[in-house]
Amino acid sequence: MSGYSDGFGGAWKLIFTLDPDLYEIIFLSLQVTITAVIIASIIGLPMGAWLAVNRFMFRRYVIAVLNALMGLPPVVVGLFVYMALSRAGPLGGFGLLFSPAAMIIAQVIIITPLIASISHQTIRDLWAEYHDLLISMNATRTQRIRALLWDGRRALLTATLAGFGRAIGEVGAIMIVGGNIEHATRVLTTAIALETGKGNFAFAMGLGLVLIVIAVIINLAIHIVGKTERASTW
């Protein structure tokens, strides 16, 4: 038990004394994750809406594959991204390996299917409700997708939050493609893994506390901003 209390004590000290190493890691974690969530949302939300609105051959199989991709093992994604970005790989010339950009790429690959799949389910239900109205109003395909994304925006925040939750807590892929380099690619999760291995529990717990607090604050903030708990606002 004293290990825990020492850890907690040390953690709070690091947080309240504004430890520069801790805050550098927090800032990079947020930078990488938020960028990945934005990119994945730009891809995943319209993709989910497009799949809900359009009928084409093998649509069911595409949706089934998308759902299956939600469970992509991050380590395998990390391996593929590593191979693609390494010198001998097809994208090696860009020199992105062991950089935040590589971590963002890996996170985007991991969370895009998640965001697309959840948004597909949301938009599919809304489309069933709006179908006749939008067809009757002669809305084009793009206008339909826009209306569905806009009117379903609060429910779609859940998809984005799910993506954020998965990305901020991800460790396997970004460890491989980022390399956990101090002052360069070290983020909360990789730092926790490293500090735990070193037996530096105070720092690891400080990082862990921050990780939990960030996840809770961002979820709460989005709920408040999006007014998702107030039905009268939709």
């Binding site: 809304l126 409700e129 709006y130 006749d132 109205l133 209306a147 379903g152 939709w234």
Partner: peptide
């Protein structure tokens, strides 16, 4: 429509 379709707006 018989059952009004209300947009979430």
């Amino acid at each position: 429509f018989q059952s009004p379709i209300m947009m979430r707006r």
